[in-house]
Structure formats: C-alpha cells, structure tokens
C-alpha cells in the first residue's frame, strides 16, 4: 500500500466464465477486462443476470474463471481460495452468524486470523464505534433492525482490514429512506477507511450517486466503464443510454441525417411557434412537482416516435393534443449504435 506510483488495485484480464460445458453451458462472463484503482469506490451496474454478481464472487474467490486472470495488487489470485485473499464481502442478506452476538460476529474474522485477544477487543470496539453500534454489541442479529444488521455486516467485513471490500447489493433489502441514509454512510466509511470498495447493484441512481467510477454490464460483458459523469453524458451504446437515466432514441432519417442519435428528456425544450427540429402532438402531460413530463408523438414515415421531454416547472401554453416544436442545442445530442 506504500507504493509511490498509483498501482491498480485490481486488474481483471479477459475473464470468461462458463457454467456447464464449453459448448452448451451458460456464459456468465464474456471477455471481461477491467482495471480498478486503489481506494476507489467502484460499482458494477447492470440488470439481473448480467454477470455482475458472478464477477464479484470471483473477486472473493467463490468462483474461478474459465479463462483469464485476476490480479490483486499485482498478484494473480485466480487459484487462491477466499481465505487466502485480503478481500472481504458484505453479503446480500448480510449472512450474519445467528448464534453469535454482534461483537462476536465482528470478531470472527480476527479470531480466524489468530489475532491476540486484547487486539481483537480493541479492534471490535473501534469497528462498533465506526458503524455507531456501541450499545448493541451484546445483541444477537435477530434482535436488530435491517439497517443495524447491515452495519454489523459492514463492520464484520471491514474489521480484518481487507485490501478490498466487496458489497453484493447491500442496500436492496432496505426501505427507500434507510437506503439513502446508508448510501452516505457507505461513502463515509469508504473515505474514513481508505479501502477500495466494489459495489454490485442494479439501481442506476445508487450507482451514479456513490461511485467514483462504474462499469455497466449486460449479457456477461462490460459495455462501458468510466466516471458517472462520463457515462451519463456520453453513453457508448443505446443500452447504456437507456439503462443510465432515460434517453430518447431518434433515428437520423427523422432529422434528415444518417445514424441514430440519443437525447436526454431534460435537454429538450418545447415551443409552440418557431419551427425547430421535430414537430409532434402532445399525448400526455404529467406534473411531477419540480418538473413536468411531456409525452410527444412525432410521426416518422409510417411509424410514430414517442419522445419524452422533461421541463422544469409547468409550461402553460402547451396542452394535450396540441402541437409543439421540439428544440435542443447540438452539444447535448450524441450518436449511438443502432
């Protein structure tokens, strides 16, 4: 960790994972390569079945790649069992040991590493205060709320000072309010511990809010990796554009051009009079508080394009079934593959 040059924490190199036989098996990961930097909050984002959990379990050591290599701080860990990697995991439903108290749960990894009793006590106390559960140390997991269990799972995984913390959909079992709280809690823990966090989620908002960088996955492939800003403003593909936020996909011919382009609903403005790029009929107006959402039907040859525009406040001069012109500046649109 005292490296002077910023060495990558994890390098995933052309990893394939096939469950079952090579010919007829299920291809969970398809030529995945990723570099994750030290002390980074990295997110694997994608719909269920995209391979993100398989990749995470591979980093933990519960799965081995069919092909490819994984380096942890320069060391190939593909053949190493979970216990030989300084990597700890927060499981989806926490997997707390039901027969042990909160303090015993947190101490488990330290005992397995044969730490001395006084050091274990010290470390457990420190972890309890880090996750603010000091007064719950003698409770059993069943006596805690979901959010508290979550924090115990975090403390347990962080206690042995891993090089990397893996989080498998850690917030999915919590209700919305608690989820928002835990998002900032996780960010705080990552800042305070300086450990590389790798989070798996299918929730794009969560991914955008928390990550330093993220990788969007689908069908066992990494479609795009980058900072949240990069991926949101310049999605490389239609899938990414649609999965991260919302995007209108418009065939170029509708605008007298070639290719396909994408544009975010919030970048479109509506005008009644002046001719602009497209003209359509308003089908639906949904008032969302700060924003208003318009659904506009634009005729394109024999088809009808459904375009969504999201405007701040209420646009008083537009009504359902009225015709509007759609405007947007050049710099907010981008081309996507078919």
């Amino acid at each position: 960790m005292s490296d002077s040059k910023p060495s990558p924490c994890i390098e995933i190199h052309a990893v394939d994972k096939i469950f079952g036989s090579e010919a007829s098996g299920y291809r969970a990961l398809d030529n995945v390569s990723l570099t994750i930097k030290d002390k980074e909050f990295f997110t694997l984002l994608g719909p269920s079945g995209c391979g993100k959990t398989t990749l995470l379990r591979m980093l933990a050591g519960f799965e081995t790649p069919t092909r490819g290599d994984i380096y942890l701080h320069g060391r190939n860990v593909v053949e190493l069992p979970p216990r030989a990697r300084r990597v700890n995991m927060v499981f989806q439903n926490y997997a707390l040991f039901p027969h042990l108290t909160v303090a015993q749960n947190i101490a488990f990894g330290l005992e397995m590493l044969d730490w001395k009793k006084p050091q274990i006590g010290e470390r457990v106390a420190k972890m309890l205060s880090l996750v603010r559960l000091e007064e719950f140390s003698a409770r059993k997991p069943a006596q805690l709320s979901g959010g508290q269990q979550q924090r115990v799972a975090l403390a347990r995984a962080l206690a042995p000072q891993p090089e990397v913390l893996l989080l498998d959909e850690p917030l999915s079992a919590l209700d919305l309010k608690l989820r928002k709280e835990m998002q900032s809690e996780l960010k705080r823990l990552q800042r305070e511990t300086g450990i590389t966090f790798i989070l798996v989620t299918h929730d794009q908002e969560e991914a955008l809010a928390m990550s330093d960088r993220l990788a969007v996955m689908s069908g066992g492939r990494v479609l795009q990796a980058g900072t949240p800003e990069e991926i949101y403003s310049r999605p490389a593909s239609r899938f990414v554009a649609d999965f991260i936020g919302e995007a209108n996909i418009i065939p170029g011919e509708a605008l007298g051009r070639s290719g396909t382009l994408a544009i975010r609903p919030e970048h479109i403005t509506l005008g009644a009079g002046t001719p602009a790029r497209l003209r359509g009929a308003v089908r639906e107006i949904t008032f969302l508080g700060a924003d208003t959402l318009f659904e506009i039907a634009v005729p394109h040859g024999t088809e009808i394009l459904k375009i969504r525009a999201r405007l701040r406040g209420r646009a008083p001069d537009v009504e359902v079934d009225g015709h509007v012109w759609l405007h947007w500046p050049d710099e907010v649109e981008w081309g996507v593959d078919g």
């Binding site: 519960f62 069992p81 042995p160």
Partner: peptide, 15 residues
C-alpha cells in the same frame, strides 16, 4: 443452514 453463512466464514479466513 444458509449456505451463505458458510461462504461468509470462508471469506473471513476460516479453515
């Protein structure tokens, strides 16, 4: 017994 408990134990360096 939840198999994830066993995975968690392995993950926490148990033999």
């Amino acid at each position: 017994v939840d198999p994830r408990l066993i995975e968690a134990a392995f993950d926490l360096y148990a033999s």
